[in-house]
Design a protein around this nucleic acid. Structure first.
Length: 254
DNA sequence: ATGGCTACTCCTAGTAGA
């Protein structure tokens, strides 16, 4: 089973790129973030014409998550159970065979010391609570998406420049660590220990061209799935060419 | 050198992203 996660940075602006990518990679499940579109306006037909079903959880302008799949899930869930009505739409998931998949777009945090940054840390605690309430660490669980946290020094082109900056603070590391302490492993690092693999590059200043990026798009799996993981790769080719997203897809083969 | 780009919006300037 091939599962991919991709922050598409607007599914409408990226529709042709996403369709081309699906045709090339033929994922069984594509988890998208930052779709930036309300559910009624989601371009479902483009996915359906490729043989995919779609489940969406979107909002206007910001955020929004969606899943495109070849086989219908047996269940779907959207958001945290205790979300307010106007909460950001950052989580959608489903049961695919024996697999529980959770697709997330973590808050960016905007600036250190702001309420939005505090809410980012709180959002990670809520994700951990959601896991505790809905699954067991012994189950086959996969959480993928844009986590907006750089896990380690080897995941950023210049750790000393970034240390203490948004996405690379102790607070964010603790938030991610606490989530993973539930029983999750960073699947990309199972077989790829070296530095220099990134999933996001700033549009500005030729950062992609210079090879200066961050790895913030992750696939986290429980032990039950570690055994089933064949490969995890980042498709940096998707960052090239006309009108790319600033993120590249991450793909796991189970 | 907190930003050099991109996408969004009751649009043509302001906000957000990471």
């Amino acid at each position: 089973m091939r599962i991919a996660t991709w922050n598409v940075n607007s599914v409408r602006a990226r529709l042709q790129r996403v369709a081309d990518w699906i045709t090339e990679w033929e994922p069984d499940l594509l988890c998208m973030q930052e779709t930036k579109v309300v559910d009624a306006e989601f371009p479902r037909e483009a996915f359906e014409s490729l043989g995919y079903g779609v489940e969406v959880f979107g909002q206007k302008t910001y955020n929004g998550v969606a899943m495109a799949f070849r086989k219908e899930p047996s269940a779907i869930f959207r958001g945290f159970p205790d979300d307010l009505r106007d909460a950001d739409r950052r989580l959608i998931g489903g049961i695919f065979g024996d697999l529980r998949v959770i697709n997330v777009y973590a808050p960016n945090g905007t600036q250190l010391g702001t309420e939005r940054f505090t809410q980012k840390l709180e959002w990670f605690r809520r994700l951990r609570s959601f896991l505790e309430a809905s699954a067991m660490p012994a189950d086959p669980v996969l959480i993928c998406g844009d986590f907006n946290v750089v896990p380690e020094d080897r995941d950023v082109y210049d750790p000393e420049l970034w240390r203490g900056r948004l996405l690379f603070t102790e607070d964010e590391h603790q938030a991610l660590d606490h989530l993973m302490d539930w029983g999750l492993i960073d699947a990309f690092r199972l077989r790829t220990p070296e530095a220099g693999h990134y999933s996001w590059w700033d549009y500005r200043a030729g950062m992609f061209h210079k090879g200066q990026g961050l790895r913030i798009d992750l696939i986290l799996v429980t032990n039950a799935l570690v055994r089933r993981t064949k490969s995890v790769v980042i498709d940096r080719n998707a960052r090239k060419g006309p009108k790319p997203s600033d993120h590249a897809p991450v793909i796991i083969d189970l």
